[in-house]
């Protein structure tokens, strides 16, 4: 199968869109995804068989789900701007959370009501909600350690805590 040219154009357009309007009362916020499949798979058939990714895919590191996930569990063969939902449904990037919900249903529900995820701007009226991918790299979703901001200055009379003989494990 080949990538029809217009789909590649749409993919390119997605790269340029900063935010995606999803519903009337809130706005999704976050960086647009940047699929890098098109250059090769526009003319090269993709091999759908689950396998450890080797060259030329070795720059693509996927830790999501450990050994248990394969590209096509989320992506749709030959439609690089689409993602897989439940019962064979296919969604665009703007509904990427539906794909996440396949495994993380409770988290996505929490995200929808505002328990999970980050909102910016207003606390009332139209909300701006950050999409899953604005915090989680779908391929390596774990939080990456960052340097903390500076510690507060200590009082000049600060004393180091004495080591507790029998602390928690």
């Amino acid at each position: 199968m080949r990538w029809p040219l217009p789909w590649g154009m749409v993919g390119l357009l997605w790269m340029l869109l900063p935010t995606v309007a999803a519903a009337a009362e809130f706005q999704l916020d976050g960086p647009a995804p940047q699929p890098r499949c098109a250059p090769c798979h526009a003319w090269l058939d993709a091999d759908p068989r689950p396998r450890p990714l080797a060259a030329p895919h070795d720059s693509l590191k996927v830790t999501h789900g450990g050994e248990g996930l394969w590209c096509l569990d989320c992506h749709v063969q030959d439609q690089q701007e689409s993602l897989r939902g439940g019962r064979g449904a296919v969604f665009g990037w703007d509904a990427a959370h539906r794909s996440c919900a396949l495994c993380h249903g409770a988290t996505v529900t929490a995200w929808q009501v505002g328990i999970h995820g980050k909102r910016v701007g207003n606390w009332r009226g139209p909300r701006t909600i950050q999409a899953c991918r604005s915090c989680h790299d779908a391929h390596q979703p774990a939080f990456r350690p960052v340097p903390p901001d500076p510690a507060p200055p200590r009082s000049r009379f600060w004393r180091p805590p004495s080591p507790t003989p029998e602390g928690p494990p």
């Binding site: 009082s155 009379f157 600060w158 004393r159 805590p161």
Partner: peptide, 8 residues
Amino acid sequence: LGEVATYR
């Protein structure tokens, strides 16, 4: 908050 300091 559990800090130990002192005073002079």
